[in-house]
Design a protein around this nucleic acid. Sequence first.
DNA 1: TAGTGGTCTAGACCACACT
DNA 2: GTGTGGTCTAGACCACTAA
Lengths: 252, 252
Amino acid sequence: MGTTQLQTVPEPKYWHLKTVIGEALDSEFAVGEILPNERDLAARFGVARATLRQALEQLELEGRLQRRRGVGTTVAPPRVGVAVEGSRAHSWPGARGDVWQPAGCERGSAPAAVADLLDSEEPVHVVRRTRVSHGRPVAAELLYVPVSSVAELSSIDGPSGPGRARAVLRELQRLGLEGEDRSVELGSASADDARELDRLPGAPVLVVTTRFFAEGRTAAVAVATYRADTCRLTFGDTPHVEIDHRQERRAS
Amino acid sequence: MGTTQLQTVPEPKYWHLKTVIGEALDSEFAVGEILPNERDLAARFGVARATLRQALEQLELEGRLQRRRGVGTTVAPPRVGVAVEGSRAHSWPGARGDVWQPAGCERGSAPAAVADLLDSEEPVHVVRRTRVSHGRPVAAELLYVPVSSVAELSSIDGPSGPGRARAVLRELQRLGLEGEDRSVELGSASADDARELDRLPGAPVLVVTTRFFAEGRTAAVAVATYRADTCRLTFGDTPHVEIDHRQERRAS
DNA sequence: TAGTGGTCTAGACCACACT
DNA sequence: GTGTGGTCTAGACCACTAA
């Protein structure tokens, strides 16, 4: 009765599990190592598989685990730092040392959210690009370019492949870039993005939206989705060194 | 046999549900409106509650729903754009129009990941700050300042409250700021963060890590966690206008 | 074909916020 | 108290990968 049990808060099992497994990852596992399967792990900890999965989902969200259907659960390498260009030195997509690979280009209309940013409902070229780091795809981008921004091109109706994508980017360079604007938010992968990023639909992604200003208006909008599990976005002149939350142990 | 049923992929129920409910949010619900409870919704769609919850979790992750235990599920307002300062104009924390509120200050040792960035194992002042936007807490920050960065202060052993936090920040201003470095990644709220952000532990957050350079070394490191459900981080001179995510459809 | 993670069910109880 | 979302269980079947 009188016992002031201030905070006997029953910590959720999955939260405790996450902590325990997280610590085990630090001390007993190397990067790339395969964990026991979910049914075994659940039995070992005396919980239902669903509960165990809740813990694993958290760890995957934090980039410490990687799970693949039909394969198993492995210890993920530290997140890779990915530089988001233009934080200080503005440049058009496709310029000089651009790390993005043009993948295709189609014509269509911008989704409502993008049309708002473009302040226009006019048709757009939609340039698809992908970004690869350390041999793995890390981001997929859709670049929306109003046809009026690259008027010279409008007569050309070639195939909608990488060639056309490059042509649109080339035309874009001719505009004087006056500034950029960027935002980052959490999203979930669309079916298209998921395919390009080698993830399941709904996987968490970091959505980087960039507005390019030229000739007094928004000349283009880029929506890039980065794999949230494997990427750390870096800004500024001096890229971060690798951050490692574990003890560095080599996989073999 | 010969039928190339390329993609008769049975779309998961929760994915389909997410789409259906998402569209209903666009057309039939106003911001702040309360949805039917989970049991009713599950029954209405003819699925188990767990399946319905998977869909709601996705929508919450995308910032379109807000769920509170004991209350219900409401339609979330569009994400608020939160400016991350210093993308171009560098300044110390606590300077001029800093939007952060000092909450406390303690001494301790930096966690391993931060110690790596500081290139030092020495004791640090840990300044706690919070950030409020539109009357709601949106971010919690821990600012790690090695004692040697604010040597003048080391003799003062006052109470570890907001006053001391301000004192540390004041000392910091005296150093010449040479540059900053910033990274953004996905994380999950610690128990502490969760309390300050009015969320449950494990809630998704955007972790912004900032390094401050002065006198040829890393003079301080700030780790800020923003509510991923309600925030859109903006960089650059011109903050984004409100982005509305409804109709998130691909151009085709 | 065997083994993995992904999806789904139909329950149960708990912590919390209101009234 | 009543109703809400949060946690947990013990199953089942499916989709995928690799031997």
